[in-house]
Write a protein that binds this DNA or RNA. Structure first.
Length: 273
DNA sequence: ATACCGACCTGTCAGC
DNA sequence: TGCTGACAGGTCGGTA
């Protein structure tokens, strides 16, 4: 699934292509799993709305909806999309074949369609009336002092803290591993036991890896497709993620894979302390 | 209050 | 070929 850089890339792609377009009608599939708001409410809110500002908030795509001259129009309505593990939002021509696991199709005034596709259905769709806020801090906006405070007194492994969306919104499994690798910190270290100097390295590493990945258009492994439906995103070189048994790029020691609270963690036992 | 752990789903891939 | 099991970018809610 898409982590922060991929969601950022998708949000930018959508913003570029559909900002200003108007949703004329909405079709929602039978499967209700991806819906956090009732289907009726989603359809009613989207239909007739203009797609205004489109941006990333944590791992969510937030789309401001405008309704000119409609009295019943909800003020500040937003359409919130979370892609889960395998979700994608594509801009399709109306004659383009509807792929399997398509859960929502929004017909646009321009003749195109916005489609939400999600095989595993871990993604979520909802509409909200107030400005949507991610539960935690934006990794690319937080300053170092606040970042360091997030980990104080936490006994949980540093990696679990990075993945905790209530602390930081947007960091996922790949970039948590990659940031820890760049910072030379083992994923299992207790968060509270990571020194201030190490946290500084982690902060810098996280900013760096996220910026690099955004610049590269997100890391693509399997299901990742951009908002145009094109595959083949340029991928930044992962130093540890998915490289179990392969040599560390620095010291050649085979990369280890362990499980931390049910998720894979990859690291170099020699370079990361 | 925190922190693990399984559950939620489908698809893919390696190994037999 | 086909079967089986492990694993996948994420979050929840229940339980300890």
């Amino acid at each position: 699934m898409p982590e922060l850089p991929e969601v950022e890339t998708i949000a930018r792609g959508l913003a570029k292509r559909v900002t200003g377009d108007v949703i004329e009608s909405v079709w929602i599939g039978e499967r209700k799993q991806p819906l956090l708001s009732p289907a009726r409410e989603i359809a009613a809110t989207l239909e007739g709305s203009r797609l205004a500002k489109i941006r990333r908030v944590g791992k969510h795509i937030a789309i401001d909806l405008e309704r000119d001259g409609r009295k019943r129009a909800p003020e500040h309505a937003q359409w919130i999309v979370h892609l889960g593990m395998t979700g994608k939002v594509i801009v399709a021509e109306s004659d383009q074949q509807v792929e399997k696991h398509t859960h929502l199709i929004a017909k646009l005034a321009s003749g195109r369609e916005l489609r939400f596709v999600d095989p595993r259905m871990f993604g979520k769709l909802k509409v909200v009336r107030e400005a949507f806020q991610a539960p935690g801090r934006e990794p690319l906006e937080i300053n170092f002092e606040d970042f360091a405070k997030l980990f104080r007194g936490r006994k949980t492994p540093i990696k679990s803290a990075l993945l905790n969306q209530k602390l930081l919104s947007g960091v996922g499994n790949i970039y948590a591993d990659e940031a820890l690798a760049r910072a030379g910190i083992r994923p299992k270290r207790r968060a509270a036991a990571v020194t201030r100097a190490e946290l500084r390295k982690l902060y810098d590493a996280l900013q760096q890896v996220l910026h690099e990945a955004i610049a590269a258009g997100g890391s693509s492994i399997n299901d990742y497709v951009d908002s145009d439906g094109n595959e083949g995103f340029f991928q930044i070189q992962h130093r540890v993620y998915g490289r179990e048994g392969e040599p560390c790029l620095t010291c050649k020691t085979p990369i280890k894979r362990i499980v931390i609270s049910g998720r894979s963690a990859h690291y170099c036992a020699k370079c990361q302390k």
